[in-house]
Computed example of a mutant assay.
Amino acid sequence: MQSETITAAAAGTWKLGDLTVNRLGFGAMRLTGAAAFDLGAPRDRRRSIGVLRRAVELGVNHIDTAAFYFSTLRSANELINSALAPYPDDLVIVTKVGPGRDPSGEWLPWARPERLRGQVEENLRQLGRDHLDVVNLRVEGPGPVAEHFGALAELCEAGLIRHLGISSVSPAQFFEAQAVAPVVCVQNRYGLDGRGPNSGELLRICGEQGIAFVPFFAIAGEGREAGAPAGGGDNGVVTDVARAHGATPAQVRLAWTLHQGPHILAIPGTGDPAHLDENIAAGALRLSAEDLTRLASS
Protein backbone atom coordinates (compact mmCIF):
# COMPACT_ATOMS: atom_id res chain seq x y z
CA MET A 1 0.00 0.00 0.00
CA GLN A 2 1.22 3.49 -0.81
CA SER A 3 1.06 5.57 2.36
CA GLU A 4 2.22 9.00 1.23
CA THR A 5 -1.12 9.96 -0.38
CA ILE A 6 -3.33 8.38 2.27
CA THR A 7 -4.47 10.35 5.31
CA ALA A 8 -6.22 9.40 8.53
CA ALA A 9 -9.49 10.56 7.00
CA ALA A 10 -9.55 7.37 4.91
CA ALA A 11 -10.73 5.44 7.97
CA GLY A 12 -13.80 7.63 8.43
CA THR A 13 -14.85 9.55 11.54
CA TRP A 14 -16.59 9.03 14.88
CA LYS A 15 -17.31 11.21 17.90
CA LEU A 16 -15.88 11.52 21.37
CA GLY A 17 -18.80 13.30 22.95
CA ASP A 18 -19.25 16.37 20.75
CA LEU A 19 -15.72 16.12 19.30
CA THR A 20 -15.39 14.57 15.83
CA VAL A 21 -12.17 12.66 15.19
CA ASN A 22 -10.75 10.49 12.44
CA ARG A 23 -11.00 6.83 13.40
CA LEU A 24 -7.27 6.33 12.85
CA GLY A 25 -5.47 8.14 15.67
CA PHE A 26 -2.08 7.94 17.36
CA GLY A 27 -0.91 6.50 20.69
CA ALA A 28 2.00 8.34 22.31
CA MET A 29 3.21 5.53 24.59
CA ARG A 30 6.13 4.47 22.37
CA LEU A 31 7.46 7.97 21.69
CA THR A 32 9.70 8.01 24.74
CA GLY A 33 11.74 4.83 24.32
CA ALA A 34 12.19 1.72 22.23
CA ALA A 35 10.02 -0.17 24.72
CA ALA A 36 7.19 1.33 26.70
CA PHE A 37 8.15 2.44 30.22
CA ASP A 38 11.82 1.63 29.52
CA LEU A 39 14.19 3.81 31.54
CA GLY A 40 17.11 2.81 29.33
CA ALA A 41 18.24 4.80 26.30
CA PRO A 42 15.56 7.34 25.30
CA ARG A 43 14.40 7.81 21.72
CA ASP A 44 15.92 10.61 19.69
CA ARG A 45 13.95 13.71 20.66
CA ARG A 46 14.04 15.30 17.23
CA ARG A 47 12.75 12.10 15.63
CA SER A 48 9.85 11.77 18.10
CA ILE A 49 8.82 15.38 17.50
CA GLY A 50 8.99 14.73 13.77
CA VAL A 51 6.70 11.71 14.12
CA LEU A 52 4.10 13.78 15.97
CA ARG A 53 4.17 16.56 13.39
CA ARG A 54 3.97 14.06 10.55
CA ALA A 55 0.96 12.39 12.23
CA VAL A 56 -0.93 15.69 12.28
CA GLU A 57 0.10 16.40 8.67
CA LEU A 58 -1.44 13.03 7.76
CA GLY A 59 -4.75 14.00 9.34
CA VAL A 60 -4.44 12.51 12.81
CA ASN A 61 -6.62 14.58 15.14
CA HIS A 62 -6.88 12.12 18.07
CA ILE A 63 -3.80 11.55 20.21
CA ASP A 64 -3.79 9.27 23.25
CA THR A 65 -1.28 9.98 26.01
CA ALA A 66 -0.67 9.97 29.78
CA ALA A 67 1.63 11.66 32.29
CA PHE A 68 3.03 8.24 33.21
CA TYR A 69 4.33 7.73 29.65
CA PHE A 70 7.95 8.65 30.25
CA SER A 71 11.48 7.26 30.05
CA THR A 72 14.87 8.72 30.89
CA LEU A 73 14.85 12.35 29.62
CA ARG A 74 11.62 11.86 27.67
CA SER A 75 7.98 12.62 28.51
CA ALA A 76 5.24 11.89 25.97
CA ASN A 77 3.21 14.89 27.13
CA GLU A 78 6.20 17.22 26.91
CA LEU A 79 7.00 15.95 23.41
CA ILE A 80 3.40 16.56 22.33
CA ASN A 81 3.54 20.09 23.76
CA SER A 82 6.86 20.88 22.09
CA ALA A 83 5.85 19.41 18.73
CA LEU A 84 2.28 20.64 18.36
CA ALA A 85 1.58 23.71 20.53
CA PRO A 86 -0.14 25.97 19.72
CA TYR A 87 -2.50 23.10 19.07
CA PRO A 88 -4.69 22.84 15.95
CA ASP A 89 -8.32 23.64 16.70
CA ASP A 90 -9.50 20.16 15.69
CA LEU A 91 -6.87 18.21 17.65
CA VAL A 92 -8.32 16.08 20.45
CA ILE A 93 -5.85 14.97 23.12
CA VAL A 94 -7.01 12.14 25.35
CA THR A 95 -5.13 11.37 28.53
CA LYS A 96 -5.64 8.98 31.42
CA VAL A 97 -5.33 9.02 35.19
CA GLY A 98 -5.41 6.47 37.98
CA PRO A 99 -1.98 4.82 37.70
CA GLY A 100 1.19 6.77 38.42
CA ARG A 101 4.96 6.36 38.46
CA ASP A 102 7.58 7.93 40.68
CA PRO A 103 10.66 9.65 39.12
CA SER A 104 12.58 6.35 39.21
CA GLY A 105 9.91 4.78 37.02
CA GLU A 106 8.41 2.57 39.73
CA TRP A 107 4.64 2.16 39.62
CA LEU A 108 2.67 3.73 42.45
CA PRO A 109 -0.51 2.32 44.01
CA TRP A 110 -3.73 3.16 42.19
CA ALA A 111 -4.57 6.75 43.07
CA ARG A 112 -7.23 7.46 45.65
CA PRO A 113 -10.09 9.68 44.37
CA GLU A 114 -8.71 12.74 46.19
CA ARG A 115 -5.40 12.40 44.31
CA LEU A 116 -6.93 12.44 40.84
CA ARG A 117 -7.06 16.24 40.70
CA GLY A 118 -3.29 16.35 41.11
CA GLN A 119 -2.89 13.90 38.23
CA VAL A 120 -5.21 15.95 36.03
CA GLU A 121 -3.27 19.12 36.86
CA GLU A 122 0.00 17.35 36.06
CA ASN A 123 -1.32 16.50 32.59
CA LEU A 124 -2.53 20.08 32.12
CA ARG A 125 0.89 21.46 33.07
CA GLN A 126 2.85 19.07 30.85
CA LEU A 127 0.58 19.61 27.86
CA GLY A 128 0.37 23.36 28.38
CA ARG A 129 -3.42 23.46 28.34
CA ASP A 130 -6.14 25.02 30.48
CA HIS A 131 -8.45 22.01 30.07
CA LEU A 132 -8.24 18.40 28.91
CA ASP A 133 -10.45 17.23 26.04
CA VAL A 134 -11.02 13.70 27.36
CA VAL A 135 -9.73 12.00 30.51
CA ASN A 136 -9.96 8.23 30.89
CA LEU A 137 -10.07 6.70 34.33
CA ARG A 138 -7.67 3.75 33.98
CA VAL A 139 -9.06 1.18 36.39
CA GLU A 140 -6.87 -1.17 38.41
CA GLY A 141 -8.65 -4.35 39.45
CA PRO A 142 -12.27 -5.46 39.84
CA GLY A 143 -13.42 -3.06 42.56
CA PRO A 144 -15.93 -0.19 42.51
CA VAL A 145 -15.25 2.90 40.41
CA ALA A 146 -18.06 5.31 41.33
CA GLU A 147 -16.05 7.35 43.83
CA HIS A 148 -13.13 7.79 41.43
CA PHE A 149 -15.40 8.65 38.51
CA GLY A 150 -17.32 11.07 40.68
CA ALA A 151 -14.08 12.90 41.53
CA LEU A 152 -13.40 13.33 37.80
CA ALA A 153 -16.99 14.45 37.19
CA GLU A 154 -16.39 17.25 39.70
CA LEU A 155 -13.37 18.34 37.67
CA CYS A 156 -15.61 18.46 34.59
CA GLU A 157 -17.93 20.80 36.46
CA ALA A 158 -14.90 22.90 37.41
CA GLY A 159 -13.96 23.25 33.72
CA LEU A 160 -10.70 21.28 33.86
CA ILE A 161 -12.06 18.36 31.79
CA ARG A 162 -14.48 18.37 28.87
CA HIS A 163 -15.40 14.68 28.60
CA LEU A 164 -14.79 11.46 30.53
CA GLY A 165 -13.93 7.94 29.46
CA ILE A 166 -12.94 4.75 31.21
CA SER A 167 -10.25 2.14 30.57
CA SER A 168 -9.49 -1.49 31.43
CA VAL A 169 -12.96 -2.13 32.81
CA SER A 170 -15.61 -4.80 33.06
CA PRO A 171 -19.16 -4.19 31.84
CA ALA A 172 -20.29 -3.80 35.47
CA GLN A 173 -17.67 -1.09 36.07
CA PHE A 174 -18.68 0.66 32.85
CA PHE A 175 -22.33 0.79 33.91
CA GLU A 176 -21.32 1.94 37.39
CA ALA A 177 -19.34 4.84 35.92
CA GLN A 178 -22.12 5.68 33.48
CA ALA A 179 -24.55 6.03 36.39
CA VAL A 180 -22.28 8.80 37.75
CA ALA A 181 -21.53 10.79 34.60
CA PRO A 182 -21.61 10.40 30.79
CA VAL A 183 -18.93 8.10 29.33
CA VAL A 184 -17.76 9.05 25.82
CA CYS A 185 -15.28 6.20 25.29
CA VAL A 186 -14.12 2.84 26.60
CA GLN A 187 -10.47 1.92 26.17
CA ASN A 188 -9.73 -1.78 26.63
CA ARG A 189 -7.22 -4.29 25.25
CA TYR A 190 -8.57 -5.69 22.02
CA GLY A 191 -6.98 -7.05 18.87
CA LEU A 192 -6.99 -9.92 16.43
CA ASP A 193 -5.09 -12.22 18.77
CA GLY A 194 -5.07 -10.42 22.11
CA ARG A 195 -8.28 -9.42 23.86
CA GLY A 196 -8.91 -8.39 27.42
CA PRO A 197 -11.65 -10.03 29.50
CA ASN A 198 -15.14 -8.84 28.51
CA SER A 199 -13.77 -6.60 25.74
CA GLY A 200 -15.98 -8.21 23.12
CA GLU A 201 -19.06 -7.55 25.24
CA LEU A 202 -18.00 -3.96 25.86
CA LEU A 203 -17.39 -3.45 22.15
CA ARG A 204 -20.98 -4.56 21.53
CA ILE A 205 -22.41 -2.40 24.32
CA CYS A 206 -20.56 0.66 23.07
CA GLY A 207 -21.81 0.05 19.54
CA GLU A 208 -25.40 -0.16 20.76
CA GLN A 209 -25.02 3.12 22.65
CA GLY A 210 -22.99 4.98 20.01
CA ILE A 211 -19.99 5.26 22.33
CA ALA A 212 -16.44 5.10 20.99
CA PHE A 213 -14.54 1.89 21.71
CA VAL A 214 -10.78 2.49 21.67
CA PRO A 215 -8.72 -0.72 21.61
CA PHE A 216 -5.09 -0.73 22.65
CA PHE A 217 -2.42 -3.26 21.61
CA ALA A 218 -4.26 -3.87 18.31
CA ILE A 219 -0.88 -4.56 16.67
CA ALA A 220 1.20 -5.75 19.64
CA GLY A 221 -1.38 -8.33 20.66
CA GLU A 222 -0.07 -10.54 23.45
CA GLY A 223 3.24 -8.65 23.28
CA ARG A 224 1.45 -5.78 25.05
CA GLU A 225 3.83 -3.08 26.36
CA ALA A 226 6.86 -4.93 24.96
CA GLY A 227 5.47 -4.56 21.44
CA ALA A 228 4.94 -7.06 18.69
CA PRO A 229 7.36 -10.00 18.69
CA ALA A 230 10.31 -10.01 16.30
CA GLY A 231 9.12 -10.74 12.79
CA GLY A 232 5.58 -9.80 13.79
CA GLY A 233 4.72 -13.19 15.21
CA ASP A 234 2.00 -13.50 12.59
CA ASN A 235 0.30 -16.71 11.62
CA GLY A 236 0.06 -17.79 8.00
CA VAL A 237 -3.44 -16.41 7.49
CA VAL A 238 -2.47 -12.87 8.47
CA THR A 239 0.58 -13.05 6.23
CA ASP A 240 -1.44 -14.43 3.31
CA VAL A 241 -4.12 -11.74 3.60
CA ALA A 242 -1.44 -9.06 3.82
CA ARG A 243 0.32 -10.41 0.72
CA ALA A 244 -2.94 -10.49 -1.24
CA HIS A 245 -3.52 -6.80 -0.50
CA GLY A 246 0.08 -5.67 -0.93
CA ALA A 247 0.03 -4.71 2.75
CA THR A 248 1.97 -5.55 5.89
CA PRO A 249 0.69 -7.87 8.63
CA ALA A 250 0.48 -4.88 10.99
CA GLN A 251 -1.75 -3.07 8.50
CA VAL A 252 -4.02 -6.11 8.29
CA ARG A 253 -4.30 -6.17 12.08
CA LEU A 254 -5.27 -2.50 12.17
CA ALA A 255 -7.73 -2.88 9.31
CA TRP A 256 -9.31 -5.91 11.00
CA THR A 257 -9.73 -3.85 14.18
CA LEU A 258 -11.43 -1.00 12.33
CA HIS A 259 -13.72 -3.48 10.55
CA GLN A 260 -15.19 -4.63 13.89
CA GLY A 261 -17.50 -1.62 14.04
CA PRO A 262 -17.85 2.00 12.89
CA HIS A 263 -17.49 3.17 16.51
CA ILE A 264 -13.97 1.78 16.89
CA LEU A 265 -11.09 4.26 17.09
CA ALA A 266 -7.61 2.80 16.55
CA ILE A 267 -4.61 4.40 18.29
CA PRO A 268 -1.49 2.62 17.01
CA GLY A 269 1.71 4.07 18.40
CA THR A 270 5.23 4.20 17.01
CA GLY A 271 8.41 6.23 17.16
CA ASP A 272 9.34 5.24 13.59
CA PRO A 273 8.31 7.63 10.76
CA ALA A 274 8.01 4.80 8.22
CA HIS A 275 5.80 2.77 10.54
CA LEU A 276 3.64 5.83 11.13
CA ASP A 277 2.95 6.18 7.40
CA GLU A 278 2.12 2.45 7.20
CA ASN A 279 -0.26 2.68 10.15
CA ILE A 280 -2.12 5.64 8.67
CA ALA A 281 -2.38 3.87 5.31
CA ALA A 282 -4.08 0.93 7.03
CA GLY A 283 -7.18 3.11 7.33
CA ALA A 284 -7.70 2.73 3.59
CA LEU A 285 -7.33 -1.06 3.59
CA ARG A 286 -10.71 -2.69 2.94
CA LEU A 287 -10.89 -6.35 3.88
CA SER A 288 -13.39 -8.61 2.14
CA ALA A 289 -15.94 -10.78 3.91
CA GLU A 290 -13.77 -13.76 2.99
CA ASP A 291 -10.70 -12.06 4.51
CA LEU A 292 -12.58 -11.41 7.74
CA THR A 293 -13.84 -14.98 7.93
CA ARG A 294 -10.34 -16.37 7.41
CA LEU A 295 -8.87 -14.04 10.02
CA ALA A 296 -11.59 -14.86 12.54
CA SER A 297 -10.75 -18.55 12.26
CA SER A 298 -6.98 -18.12 12.37
Rank of each mutant, 00 (worst) to 15 (best):
A10I: 10
V237H: 02
I166L: 05
P268C: 07
D133V: 02
T95I: 11
G17L: 03
G207F: 09
E208C: 01
E121C: 06
A11M: 05
W110L: 12
L203N: 02
T239P: 01
L124P: 04
V21G: 10
A179I: 02
T248L: 13
R243D: 14
A181Q: 12
L19W: 02
P113E: 04
S170H: 11
N136E: 13
T95E: 05
A177R: 05
E208Q: 14
E225K: 07
L16V: 06
D38M: 10
S199P: 06
L292C: 11
V186I: 11
V184W: 07
T293Q: 14
A55S: 12
Q251N: 10
A10C: 05
G231I: 00
A218M: 13
N198Y: 13
A153H: 12
L295D: 10
L84V: 07
P229C: 08
I264M: 11
P182G: 05
D240R: 15
L91F: 08
P99K: 02
A296K: 13
A242D: 10
V214W: 07
G231N: 02
G271F: 12
I93C: 07
A284E: 07
T7N: 06
A250Y: 08
L254Q: 09
S297P: 01
V134E: 07
W256F: 14
L73E: 14
A250I: 08
V120M: 03
L160R: 05
A172H: 10
A250S: 14
A212Y: 06
D240M: 09
